[in-house]
């Protein structure tokens, strides 16, 4: 049995050896983590593991003992949403929205890791989240607005 923190809740996973974090999360109803491909390139399956973005479908559960996992479900409580989510809505950075949770997690990880990230840092973290709708124009604007406001505080 493996124990880890999932969105702040101690979670026990008793699963088969080949189970990925993706399988586990979808089964448990964390639907913000999505299928895009089997090899992680699309990043629709992005989660945070100890604050770092990773592809849930490339992580076997047994490697997660004691880790801290976050999905976008933990970023909002009712109408109370994360300012980055708000920036995405405000800037029109969401079209179909399938990649949005992955983008939000990627940008949030950057915000936590770096004090004054540049636009090229933003594009770098979004390279692992494929989006076929937006051309990344508005997501980059939303991210930049969020990061600038955050740093100004």
């Amino acid at each position: 049995m493996i124990q880890f923190q999932l969105n702040g809740t101690l979670t026990e996973a008793q699963v088969r050896s080949g189970t990925t974090l993706f399988d586990f999360l979808r089964e448990k109803g964390f639907f913000s983590v999505k299928y895009g491909s089997d090899k992680g390139e699309t990043g629709a399956d992005t989660v945070l593991v100890d604050g770092k973005i990773m592809n849930a479908s490339l992580i076997l559960i047994h490697t997660l003992e004691g880790k801290y996992i976050e999905t976008v479900e933990s970023f909002s409580h009712g109408q109370d949403i994360h300012p980055l989510q708000d920036a995405f809505i405000e800037e029109g950075a969401i079209q179909c929205g399938y990649c949005t949770p992955g983008m939000v997690l990627a940008i949030e990880s950057l915000a936590r890791e770096k004090e004054n990230p540049t636009e090229s840092d933003v594009k770098d973290v979004l390279a692992g989240v494929y989006c076929r709708c937006t051309g990344y124009v508005k997501p980059v604007i939303a991210a930049t607005n969020y990061l600038t406001t955050k740093n100004a505080k």
């Binding site: 992680g40 990043g43 992005t46 770092k52 973005i53 990773m54 592809n55 490339l58 390279a127 692992g128």
Partner: peptide
């Protein structure tokens, strides 16, 4: 060398 793996998700792993 970043281009070995453009996805930061995968670089983290």
């Amino acid at each position: 060398i970043k281009y070995s793996c453009p996805s930061k998700q995968i670089r983290n792993q």
